[in-house]
């Protein structure tokens, strides 16, 4: 995973509320057994017509969206299914951050593990972003600040350990594996060791 420190990008706006992970990537694409290449199926049912041709008026098919790393979404983005294919598809398409007033729990967790920064902002900032698609914004993970074009800085919350991992491009697995002694001690203390038959 590449470290994230500062993102500078124009925004893509999808103002729809409650964008669920079934929209981000429909279930029929989940028979894949890898993480790669899912950007092609991102928002497939909104993005392509029945023949598979891109719909010219869908935002991700417009020239303005090309190269944008920041998605501004309506309230409660990422609700529904736990499929990690949703952040995989967004990242494969090129997104590195999603901004909304509310971001669903499992999607937020999954995003943080894949270099996709969930940025929760207040309603006024959100409204400004929705009204100004294509705005050039800066997201500084070190200072936890979203910078708007007029110079305003909006502080956003991000879980401390996830931030550490994103800043350093490391994953949580190494940390968890490093807890091996504590895990064994817990198992012993609570009588949860593997039984002989299964060890």
């Amino acid at each position: 995973m590449d470290p994230i420190r500062i993102l500078r990008s124009r925004t893509v706006v999808m103002a729809t509320t409650n964008i669920d992970t079934d929209q981000i990537i429909p279930a029929r694409f989940l028979t894949t057994t890898t993480k790669e290449g899912l950007g092609a199926q991102l928002f497939a049912d909104w993005r392509y017509d029945a023949t598979g041709a891109p719909k010219p008026d869908f935002i991700l098919n417009t020239p303005a969206a090309q190269g944008c790393q920041v998605l501004v979404a309506g309230r409660n983005v990422g609700c529904g299914s736990s499929r990690e294919h949703a952040p995989w598809a967004l990242v494969d398409f090129g997104f590195r951050a999603v901004i909304s007033t509310e971001i669903a729990d499992i999607f937020r967790n999954n995003s943080l593990k894949n270099g996709l920064l969930p940025v929760i902002v207040d309603a006024a900032t959100h409204e400004w972003l929705l009204a100004n698609p294509g705005a050039e914004v800066t997201i500084d993970l070190e200072s936890r600040e979203l910078g708007l074009p007029d110079g305003r800085k909006v502080v956003f919350p991000v879980e401390a350990f996830a931030r550490f991992c994103l800043l350093n491009g490391t994953d949580e697995m190494g940390y968890l594996l490093g807890q091996g002694e504590a895990i064994a001690a817990y198992e012993a203390l609570h009588g949860k060791q593997p039984t002989a038959a299964t060890a």
Binding site: S82, R83, E84, I106, N109, N110, K113, N114, E159, F161, D171, E172, M173, Y175, L176, L177, Q179, G180, I183
Partner: peptide, 20 residues
Amino acid sequence: FGIGSTEVGHVFATQCLLQR
């Protein structure tokens, strides 16, 4: 509760999750 595939890997490997 439901988890993502990265976390599935964490539980496979350590039987633990990092949680707030």
